Amino acid sequence: MKLPIVAYGDPVLRKKAEEIDEDYPNLKQLIDDMFETMYAARGVGLAAPQVGLPIRLFVIDASPFAEDDEDGEGDPSLKDFKKVLINPIIIEEKGEKWGFSEGCLSIPDINEEVMRPSTVVINYLDEDFEEQEVELTGLAARIVQHEYDHIEGKLFVDKLGPIKKAMIKGRLDAISKGMIRVGYKMRFPNLKNKKR
């Protein structure tokens, strides 16, 4: 089932999410719904707060980045990079910071260059509640860092400088009021009881 994606301005996107255990109600269904929602919105990652749930869970499928883009810059190592991360903890961020144009399904039509460390070590539980620890670099690390920010109550626009923030403020306000057209269901915080 496709879930509505929560838009910028909703308080759930600013909450530090809570850990969950294996008894979390309908967890398997939620994970399936999150993947379906992410694919329908043509995203590569989706965190539970983005569907209104303040829990430490996100899903990723970076395979779109495996294919060559116009510059022939696809990353074949991302071909099968599909993961469910439950209660993740970033152990270490390291390496040189590099810029990449990021977007977010909760902040449609805004893409800005964000600087992040090139490598991340993350510990998490997979969908079978088996503990995993991986070191990721490049786009895989960036996607994980972006989604991890969501469960910490942070957004990619928080990483922008004051001038950039001022330049997009009007567009962010418009998103929170539902004054935007998107190709997927959204829930807007300042548009009561109306879904688009």
Rank of each mutant, 00 (worst) to 15 (best):
H150V: 03
G161I: 05
K82M: 04
N26C: 06
G153K: 07
N26R: 15
I20A: 13
D21V: 07
G183H: 07
N190E: 10
L27E: 05
V144C: 09
D10N: 10
E152H: 08
R56Q: 13
D21E: 15
V182A: 12
A174M: 06
F188N: 04
M167E: 13
N193R: 11
G9I: 10
K83E: 09
A7N: 13
I89V: 13
E18F: 03
I110C: 07
E135I: 14
K165M: 05
D173F: 03
E113R: 11
M34L: 07
L139K: 05
V144I: 10
A40P: 00
L139F: 11
L3N: 02
I91V: 14
D109Y: 11
S176N: 06
D10S: 12
V120G: 01
A7D: 05
A140I: 11
N26D: 15
L125T: 00
G99L: 13
R56L: 02
G178L: 02
K82F: 06
V12K: 03
T137A: 15
K79R: 11
S176Q: 15
Q29Y: 05
G103Y: 12
P64S: 06
D158M: 01
T37E: 03
G9H: 09
D75Y: 02
E96W: 14
E67M: 12
E130H: 12
K97S: 03
V84R: 11
N190P: 00
V114S: 02
S176P: 07
D109H: 15
I180C: 13
L136E: 14
R171P: 00
M1S: 10
L85E: 07
R187W: 08
P25N: 04
I180H: 04
S118C: 10
P25D: 09
K159R: 13
K2M: 11
Q29M: 10
I86D: 02
L13E: 09
K165L: 11
I20K: 00
N26H: 14
R142E: 09
Y148R: 08
Q29E: 14
E152L: 14
Q132G: 00
Y184L: 07
K79Y: 03
V59Q: 06
L3F: 06
K194V: 15
V59L: 08
M34V: 12
M34G: 04
A41I: 02
M115R: 07
I122W: 07
K185T: 02
I55S: 03
L155N: 05
N123T: 07
E67G: 05
M179K: 15
C104T: 04
S118A: 11
R14D: 00
Y8R: 07
F65R: 13
G52I: 08
L30E: 05
D69S: 06
D75G: 11
F65C: 07
I91G: 01
K154I: 01
P108G: 03
D68T: 01
D69F: 08
T137E: 10
A140W: 03
D75M: 11
V144P: 06
L53P: 05
V6H: 04
P117G: 10
S77Q: 12
I20W: 06
D10A: 08
E113A: 09
S101N: 14
P117F: 10
M38Y: 05
Y24V: 09
D80W: 01
L155R: 04
L191K: 08
G153R: 08
K169M: 11
N190R: 14
K97H: 05
I89H: 05
L13N: 01
K169I: 00
